[in-house]
């Protein structure tokens, strides 16, 4: 065997050895990387499985509270404005006999007729009409104009802003058509409609 051939064989032996050694080290690097990576992933997984439910609870609690507090704040603001509208209405009702006497008188006549009709239907013929001092005179005249002569009336002064309260002699049945009584009775009935007048633009935006 020539010395060139021997050298060539030696080189081939070393080429193969280096190739093999490099592969062994490359594989080891990859394996080492994988082992460390898996450990990190395991830690992350365990962390996530413990944290996720707590995150959900925390999120629900904090956002839920913000929404609840916010809604309550808007509701209180709305109530305040609605109350303002009702108070303003009460002031207008107090002034009505002066600002629109004819309309007020029509109202008195209407509620008086209604009260008389209802009491007559129950067979009551002796009625007491409660009203403020200002309205008693008007009411006495209105009573005279009622065609139902079978009913007798007596009048009592009451601390009302307007309208009438009618009762039978014993005070067992009461027909409350005072302005403040009607306003209070209608408060809950009108609330939604009043709100829709007040907040139509807020709701639209």
């Amino acid at each position: 065997m020539s010395s060139d051939a021997v050298e060539a064989l030696k080189e081939e032996i070393w080429r193969r050895a280096r190739e093999k050694a490099d592969k062994i080290l490359r594989d080891a690097d990859e394996e080492a990387k994988r082992i460390v990576e898996e450990a990190r992933e395991k830690v992350e997984r365990e962390l996530k499985s413990r944290i996720e439910p707590e995150r959900i609870i925390l999120r629900r609690r904090l956002l839920g509270k913000a929404m609840m507090d916010g809604r309550r704040m808007v509701l209180l603001a709305k109530n305040e404005v609605i109350e303002k509208a009702f108070n303003k209405a009460l002031e207008k009702l107090k002034q009505l006999p002066q600002t629109n006497p004819s309309e007020y008188e029509k109202f008195l006549e209407k509620v008086l007729r209604k009260a008389v009709e209802e009491f007559s239907a129950m067979g009551e013929s002796n009625l007491i009409i409660y009203a403020n001092e200002r309205d008693l005179g008007v009411l006495k005249k209105l009573v005279d104009s009622l065609s139902n002569s079978s009913v007798s009336f007596s009048f009592e002064k009451a601390d009302l802003i307007g309208g009438i309260i009618v009762s039978d002699r014993d005070g067992r049945v009461i027909f409350n058509s005072s302005l403040e009584g009607r306003l209070n009775s209608l408060r809950s009935i009108l609330r939604d409609q009043v709100a829709s007048i007040l907040f139509k633009e807020v709701e639209a935006s």
Binding site: G70, V81, F86, A89, L186, I197, S205
Partner: peptide, 23 residues
């Protein structure tokens, strides 16, 4: 809520007129 509170007087007036009419 601030927007609700700053509703113009004219709208409150309109609502109060409605209440009076209904009463």
């Amino acid at each position: 809520a601030e927007k609700v509170k700053s509703i113009p007087e004219s709208v409150i007036e309109e609502a109060s007129e409605f209440i009076v009419r209904e009463v």
